[in-house]
Amino acid sequence: MAGYQPGFFLSEYVWRLPAFPEDLSVPGGFYLLTLDTSRKFKQSLEELNYNIMCGICGCGQEDGTVTIKKVGEHTSSPADAPVAHMHKHGHHHHHHRHHGNEIGNEKVLQIEQDILGKNNLLAERNRGYFEAKNILTLNLVSSPGSGKTALLERTLTELKDEIPCYVIEGDQQTSNDASRIAATGAEVVQINTGKGCHLEADMVNTAVKKLSPSENSLLFIENVGNLVCPAMFDLGEAVRVVIISVTEGEDKPIKYPDMFHSSQLCIINKIDLLPYVSFDIEKVKEYAGQVSHITEFIELSATTGEGMDQWYDWLRARVRPQR
């Protein structure tokens, strides 16, 4: 490869050059350069007005600062005059080409691909859309019958005049829940997953296009009632909210640890029934704390309205001030 001098320096650095002079090498691949030659390359590329980005971590500036500016906006940041940035990377997994080992007709492809990668990418696209439009998106998960829909009905009725609210309803069958939500006046899209046990990012992506929520709003995604499967699928939400009611066992967090591990808020619903059941709220918090050390708790009753103010304050604090 042009410019590569084996043994010139002990340390070698991997750079990805998004565009490359044709006479040097193939564009878009990985190039091994010595410290000295990479400096020379960088100088020559800068003269040609090419941008250099580190192929491993994407860093392009020595001081680590990030500037985001509009066209024509002036900053005196050193980022405007990038300097060669060198650091050593360990073994990496960015295989942009198949590294094939052929044995007879068989060919072994080292693909190293995340099985949920497609869902996660789409979830991040959703998340970016929500952030840009300032839509606070919550993924509500629980077992069937914990009161997700009842909680939503009351929340929408009492909050809709203050903040625009939208709902995506996920169920295997029927649009019963969507009808209950629509009765509150909120705009709602129902997803029926058929035999599917959870929502995925592409379903939310399609549903959001149908819903076209306004800016500075709240979007509730009511997932399929299931404490197992929805845990694995990022939808692009800002916060995952797990709901447990006092008529369930207080050991749910350690029976279904994946869900409680991936949630940031735990709502304990139906507290009006506490006198009639042997449910220990402190115990459930203790179990949830063993699985996740970041979970917050709100105790409420969607039926009597007790504790709902705390929930609304939590929501208000997270919908950014309207611009």
Partner: peptide, 10 residues
């Protein structure tokens, strides 16, 4: 981890 590490094709 949840990965497809390698695939042998013919």
């Amino acid at each position: 981890e949840l990965r497809v590490k390698a695939l042998t094709v013919v």
